[in-house]
Design a protein around this nucleic acid. Sequence first.
DNA 1: ATTGTTGCAAAGTGTTTGCACAAAC
DNA 2: GTTTGTGCAAACACTTTGCAACAAT
Lengths: 151, 151
Amino acid sequence: VPRSTASSRPERWADHAAQRLSEAGYRRGGARGAVIGLLDKQECALSAIEIEDRLRRRRNQASRASIYRVLEELEGLGLVSRLELGAGIARFETVRGEAHHHHLVCDDCGDIVPFADDELEQAIRRVSRRLPHEISGHDVTLHGLCAGCRA
Amino acid sequence: VPRSTASSRPERWADHAAQRLSEAGYRRGGARGAVIGLLDKQECALSAIEIEDRLRRRRNQASRASIYRVLEELEGLGLVSRLELGAGIARFETVRGEAHHHHLVCDDCGDIVPFADDELEQAIRRVSRRLPHEISGHDVTLHGLCAGCRA
DNA sequence: ATTGTTGCAAAGTGTTTGCACAAAC
DNA sequence: GTTTGTGCAAACACTTTGCAACAAT
């Protein structure tokens, strides 16, 4: 098991986010810290209301308004990305430098699963070059039935 | 210029849709006909409200409620697909057998442009096979700046 | 002391629904 | 005449905003 090297550069996304926010002139605040701490532990996208519920359960709650405001700030700094996976509700997930992934949505139960594929990324890069726009990002959403709902 | 062959099979999407609706036991109605007629002439996705506005301009208007109801029926029959391109609003476009396309959204002006790419489709097919879900559809959205907004 | 942050409640928007009337069959 | 389609208005759900109290610097 590799020990974390005691470098001055933060490894956790939460630390990275805190640093970027501080550099950008934001102060520390309860709601912001709570949202960041929660997002840091997720491996996939959450909606604002899911965030609210989970924070309440941890007795670390924040108002819905603050949650939306924090998410907007984080998106503006490129620290989280906002996705619309099809039900008219926005979902948010951390942007970590490394692997970036896409989403598989079960049309029956609504469950969302991340997946990644290099060949797909390559194809997207290739087509992006071909187009007149200056492409800065992309989303791929696959729809279908998950193993459970197929039965 | 190839003349259309006078076959018994309808060529226009609107005719195809009308036939499918009739087979499914739906009656004919003003709002439904208006929405179908409008969608048939589009090459890319429209929101419910854009549909409402365009129908009003043509003096062929339908209530917003009916528009949503018609779109829901059409989606249920697989005649239109519903997309969420990122602004929290749903867009709808005809599903025509042949070429299927994806969307390029300008982050500045919000303009939406369709594009198609075979290699991308192949990559999606390939990754779909690899996953545990039974994939029935997919969306790809590219974000960036269009030629106009880049200036 | 200043200025950013939070919570509440109200407002905003896109979408859905209940119901009565009109239209299709 | 029965059943479906439509329009209106009210209800909904997610998101945003105004404002006063609070907390960080």
